[in-house]
Amino acid sequence: MQALEPGIVFWILAVVILVSGFLVVTLRNMFHCALCLILCLFAVAGIYVLLEAEFLAAAQVLIYVGAVAILIVFTVMLTSDLASESLIQHNENGTIAFVVCALFAIGVPYLIKNTGVWMPAKGELISDNVGSIGKYLMTDFMLPFELVSVLLLAALIGAIVLARKERS
C-alpha cells in the first residue's frame, strides 16, 4: 500500500516493538513473555518489509518466529518451575543496568550521527533482492557464509553430545 504514509506504519511498528520488548522483560508469566517476544520479532519483520527487504522479513519470521521462539515456548512449557509460578524478573542491579542501557541507547545514535563512519547507502535498491543475496553469498561472501555453516554444524553436534545420555 504505497498510498498509506510509511511514517505512520513505522511509528506503529516502533511502538509495538518497544512495548512488547518491554513486556518481555517485565511480565511475571514466562509464557506471556515468550509470546511478547514473538510479537516483537514479528514487528521487526514488519520494519524489514518497510525497508523493502522482503527476503530478510520472510527469513526473520521463518527462523525467529517459526523456530527460535517456538523452541523458547517449548522450553517454558517443559520446565515446570518456569511454567507454574510467576517470576520476578529483576534484582537489585536494576539501577546500574538501566544506566548502562540508557547510555548505550543515547550513545550509539550519537556516535553514528557524529563520527561519519556510517554513511547511508548510495544508489538505488536492487529490485531482485533474493537473487542478489544468493549471488553475493556464493561469490563475494563465500567465506563468511561457509564459516557460519561450520559454526552452526559445530553447535548442532555440540547440542547432540550434551543432550545424549551415556550408555553404560
Binding site: F55, A57, A58, L62, V65, I70
Partner: peptide, 20 residues
C-alpha cells in the same frame, strides 16, 4: 510477491504458535 512461496512458509508457521 517476489518471495511468494517463502512468504507462505513464513505465515503458516504462526499456526504452530496458535496451537501452542
Amino acid at each position: 510477491l517476489n518471495i511468494g512461496i517463502l512468504y507462505i512458509m513464513a505465515v503458516t508457521t504462526f499456526t504452530v504458535i496458535s496451537l501452542l
